[in-house]
Design a protein around this nucleic acid. Sequence first.
DNA 1: CGCACATGACACCTTGGTTGTCATGTCTGA
DNA 2: TCAGACATGACAACCAAGGTGTCATGTGCG
Lengths: 158, 158
Amino acid sequence: MVTDSDSPLGPDELSARLGEVFDLVGPLYRRAQRKVEQYAPLQGLSVGVRAVLALLREHGSMTVPQMGRAQALSRQFVQRMVNEAAARGLVESAPNPAHKRSSLIRLTGEGAAAITALVAREREMLSQVGGDLTDDDITACLRVLTRMLEFLDDIDVD
Amino acid sequence: MVTDSDSPLGPDELSARLGEVFDLVGPLYRRAQRKVEQYAPLQGLSVGVRAVLALLREHGSMTVPQMGRAQALSRQFVQRMVNEAAARGLVESAPNPAHKRSSLIRLTGEGAAAITALVAREREMLSQVGGDLTDDDITACLRVLTRMLEFLDDIDVD
DNA sequence: CGCACATGACACCTTGGTTGTCATGTCTGA
DNA sequence: TCAGACATGACAACCAAGGTGTCATGTGCG
């Protein structure tokens, strides 16, 4: 039967259900941002700076344009966030052997401490989401979101 | 065993994995927004207006404050979107038998056509996501996102 | 070498969304 | 029954996230 819940969906059912996901992602994103806003400022971190620090924490040193591409943000915006972070001493630039103008950005000790502390607090908050979510649920969720992301990957920014 | 993949997670594992979800939602949201813009060249419908039309399409006529509460948005913002939609003839207000000042907002034929067409185009785009996603995957995804949204809902607005 | 392209810097704009305030309308209870 | 608490609409000020445009400089490649 076409509606077997554990076999891949056809295009029609798929798009209808993905539409539901889509309708949740927007509000979720914006509300999460607001929530982060009320946690992060304690350390003086804007959402953008937070994103930059988190990226560097996970991927190590990167150039500004690399970060922009990784997060689908304009390079100019990322640059602004990096400058702001640098002004607070959370981040520093190291010469890039591969490009004189485009230096590598890396976390300072202070920056690493700040983002680690912030993530810890966010986790603490998320742990209250509770409910009856299973590991499988979240794995499936990640699968879906990742697929959508892959599909959208070919968009050009900048 | 604590890590049984089909039993509810404890707070620690839960928050760690939900953190992963969060990190995907941002880029996904931004990419999707751009993709929709380029694929379905918005006939002048801002995200806010789109949300209002979608709400009315799903729930029938509502008052402005009702919509605000339904979406955890400030009533003033919803009002602005409704006014904008009304100015374009997508929506009209009917007298509310239960309240003289707060009229019921409902879709016009034009509004219904516009939102239906938009949703159809979005669906068409999403149908290309393809992959091997099952109905169960998406259901789980919706469960996760809904839980997160509910959790964030207790931010009081207005 | 020359030319297309990537990068940094900086200014300006748009959009989603909130907060505040005021006047008017509605409901409830002593 | 009527006073005060609360809901609504209207309008304005404000904010943060993020994009766009442009210019000068640097880099890589045919």
